[in-house]
Simulated scan of single mutants.
Amino acid sequence: MYIRPFDPWKSKLCTCPFKYTLNVYTGCDHACVYCYITSYIPNAFRVRTKENLLPKLERELRKFDRRYIIALSYSSDPYPTIERELGITRKVLELFKRYDVRCLLLTKSDIFERDLDLLSELRCAVGITVTTVNERKARLLEPNAPSPKARIMSLRKARKVGIPVYARIDPIIPFYTWEDFEETLDALSFVSHITVSTLKLRPDSKKRMFAKFPELMERLWPLYERGEKIGGYHYLPREVRFEILRKAEKKITEKGITFGSCREGYRSFPSCDGSHLVP
C-alpha cells in the first residue's frame, strides 16, 4: 500500500487529526542537516522512484474514503530536484483531481509553482517549510533546498490564485534560527496558519549538527542534556520549549494567523498541521 494512515512513530505528543500520507518518492535530496528520515530510510539523501507507483496508486484511490485527507509528504519532499524532469508528483495530483481527493501538500521547494494550475482545481491547502529567511543560515542547514525567498515567492503566487496557504517554521533552533524568528514570520505574514516546532535530535542528526555547527552545539547540547528523551528524540527541557512556543504563539496570533505546534505537548488551534484549511 502506498497510501497509509499517518502515524508519526506513535508519538505520545502527536496531535494530528486522522489523515493519510503518501510519499511520492523515497528519499529526499534537500539533505537538511537536522533531518530525521536518515534514522529509518537507507541512503535517505538519494532520491528514488517507486515501482509502478501510478497504476498502484490509482487502484488504491478507487477505494479511498474521500472524507479523509492525504498529506504529501512527511518523509520525502514531493518536489525533489528530479521532479522537474520526471513530473511524477504532478501525475499524482492529476489522479487526486480525477478521484476528488482532499490533499494537504507540504514542501521545501519552489517547484510546486509549476503545478498551480492543477492545485487550484483541487480540494487542497499548500504549505512550505521555512526554517529561517537568513539565506546564509538556510544554505548551511538545507544545502540542496531552494532558497527560502524562492519558496515564499511561490507560496504568494499560490495565495493569489485562491489556494489556501500555510507554513511551518521548523525547526526552531535556539541561538541560531530563533534569532531570526520575527523576520521569518514577517516574510510569511500572508499565510493563514503557521505551525512551529523546536529542534528534536536523534543520534544521526546530532552527529551531523556537531560536525557542521561545532560552536553552536557546544552551547546547545548542554540544554538537551537537561531535557527529555521522547520516542528516540532528544528534546529541549520542557520549560525552555514552552517559553519559545509561548513567544512564537503570541507573535503569530498578533498577526491574525492561526497557530499550531508539532509534537510539543503544547496547544494548537484549530489544528496543528493546517488540515483545517483543506476545503
Rank of each mutant, 00 (worst) to 15 (best):
I173T: 04
E225T: 07
K229A: 13
T195E: 09
P174I: 08
Y233L: 15
H193K: 08
F175K: 02
I173N: 00
S197T: 00
L220E: 09
E183R: 11
P174G: 12
G232A: 12
K207D: 14
F190N: 00
L223R: 05
E182W: 02
L223D: 07
L199D: 08
L188M: 12
T184V: 10
I173W: 06
K229W: 13
W178V: 01
L185C: 04
G231C: 12
L201D: 04
Y233P: 09
W178Q: 11
E183N: 10
T195G: 08
R202G: 08
K207C: 13
L220Y: 07
E182Y: 07
H234D: 14
L201W: 03
T177S: 01
V196C: 12
E228V: 02
V191K: 02
F213R: 02
I194Q: 01
P214K: 08
H234C: 13
F175L: 09
R219L: 12
E182H: 11
L199S: 02
F190R: 04
Y224C: 00
I173M: 07
E182M: 09
L201S: 00
K200P: 00
T195S: 11
L188F: 02
W221S: 03
G231N: 15
R202I: 15
F213S: 11
F175S: 00
E218G: 06
I194M: 09
R219I: 00
S192H: 12
M209K: 00
G232K: 13
Y233H: 14
F213C: 05
K206I: 14
A187P: 05
L185W: 00
E179D: 13
D204G: 10
H193Y: 01
L216A: 06
I194T: 02
R208Y: 01
L199H: 02
R226E: 14
M209F: 07
E183C: 07
H234Q: 14
R226M: 10
P214L: 01
R226C: 08
Y224R: 01
W221L: 14
F175A: 03
H193Q: 03
D186H: 06
L220G: 05
R202D: 11
L223V: 05
F181P: 07
E182T: 09
I230Q: 10
F210T: 10
L188C: 07
G227N: 05
P214E: 05
V196L: 13
A211G: 09
R219A: 09
T198H: 06
R219D: 05
P222I: 13
T177P: 05
Y176F: 15
S192Y: 11
T184H: 03
T198C: 10
Y224T: 01
F190H: 01
W221G: 01
F175R: 03
F175Y: 14
T177C: 07
T198I: 10
E218S: 09
E183A: 09
K207P: 11
K200R: 15
E228C: 07
L223M: 08
E215G: 05
L201V: 02
W221I: 14
K200E: 03
G231L: 14
L199V: 03
L223E: 00
W221K: 08
F210C: 14
W221R: 09
F190M: 03
I230F: 07
R208C: 06
K207E: 15
S205G: 12
E182D: 14
S192C: 11
R202E: 06
